[in-house]
Computed example of a mutant assay.
Amino acid sequence: MEFFGVSLVEWIGYVAMATVLVSFLMKSVNKLRIVNSLGCLLFVLYGLLLQPLSKPIIITNIAIFSINLYYLLQKKA
């Protein structure tokens, strides 16, 4: 499936990239971590959909997501 000549998988990658970039514009660290986590999850999906799948993208973004989640939960405790 393509939109404007770009595959759906590639669009997911672009949305993930934009989400991570926008996260760094957040003034609040918590908001940054939340938006960045969403971008990480999108990158994990992107890595899984690539053929062959991209283990470096998947592993890196699961690690970053886990770090974000740790700090988000730690601050609430």
Score class of each variant (00 low, 15 high):
7 S>C: 00
7 S>V: 03
7 S>H: 03
8 L>N: 06
8 L>D: 12
8 L>S: 04
8 L>H: 08
9 V>Y: 01
9 V>L: 04
9 V>D: 10
10 E>C: 00
10 E>L: 00
11 W>E: 09
11 W>P: 03
11 W>H: 15
12 I>L: 14
13 G>H: 01
13 G>S: 04
14 Y>W: 11
14 Y>D: 02
15 V>G: 05
15 V>A: 13
15 V>M: 08
15 V>P: 02
16 A>G: 11
16 A>R: 12
16 A>Y: 09
16 A>L: 07
17 M>A: 12
17 M>H: 04
18 A>F: 14
19 T>K: 13
19 T>E: 07
21 L>W: 09
22 V>L: 14
23 S>E: 12
23 S>N: 10
23 S>Y: 08
23 S>M: 13
23 S>D: 11
24 F>I: 05
24 F>R: 02
24 F>P: 02
24 F>K: 04
24 F>Q: 06
24 F>N: 10
25 L>E: 01
25 L>P: 00
25 L>K: 09
25 L>V: 06
26 M>E: 06
26 M>F: 02
26 M>V: 08
26 M>P: 06
26 M>A: 14
27 K>C: 05
27 K>P: 05
28 S>G: 03
28 S>K: 14
29 V>H: 00
29 V>G: 00
30 N>D: 10
30 N>G: 00
30 N>F: 00
30 N>P: 00
30 N>R: 11
30 N>Y: 02
30 N>V: 02
31 K>V: 00
31 K>L: 01
31 K>D: 00
31 K>N: 05
32 L>F: 15
32 L>G: 03
33 R>E: 07
34 I>A: 05
34 I>L: 14
34 I>M: 13
34 I>Q: 10
35 V>P: 04
35 V>T: 10
35 V>I: 15
35 V>H: 08
36 N>V: 12
36 N>Q: 13
36 N>K: 09
36 N>H: 15
38 L>T: 14
38 L>E: 06
38 L>G: 15
38 L>P: 07
39 G>Q: 09
39 G>W: 07
39 G>T: 06
39 G>C: 07
39 G>P: 09
40 C>G: 13
41 L>W: 06
41 L>I: 12
42 L>Q: 06
42 L>H: 03
43 F>K: 01
43 F>P: 01
44 V>N: 05
44 V>D: 03
45 L>C: 10
46 Y>T: 07
46 Y>A: 04
47 G>E: 08
47 G>Y: 12
49 L>A: 11
49 L>T: 08
49 L>K: 14
49 L>Q: 15
49 L>P: 04
50 L>E: 12
50 L>S: 06
51 Q>T: 11
51 Q>V: 13
52 P>N: 10
52 P>W: 09
52 P>H: 09
53 L>N: 14
53 L>Y: 15
53 L>A: 07
54 S>R: 11
54 S>E: 14
54 S>C: 14
55 K>P: 00
55 K>T: 07
55 K>Q: 05
55 K>M: 12
56 P>E: 11
56 P>T: 09
56 P>G: 02
57 I>Y: 01
57 I>H: 02
59 I>Q: 05
59 I>N: 05
59 I>G: 01
60 T>Q: 04
60 T>W: 01
61 N>Y: 08
61 N>T: 10
61 N>V: 07
61 N>C: 09
61 N>G: 05
62 I>G: 02
62 I>K: 10
62 I>M: 13
62 I>W: 06
62 I>P: 01
62 I>D: 07
62 I>F: 06
63 A>T: 15
63 A>W: 10
64 I>G: 05
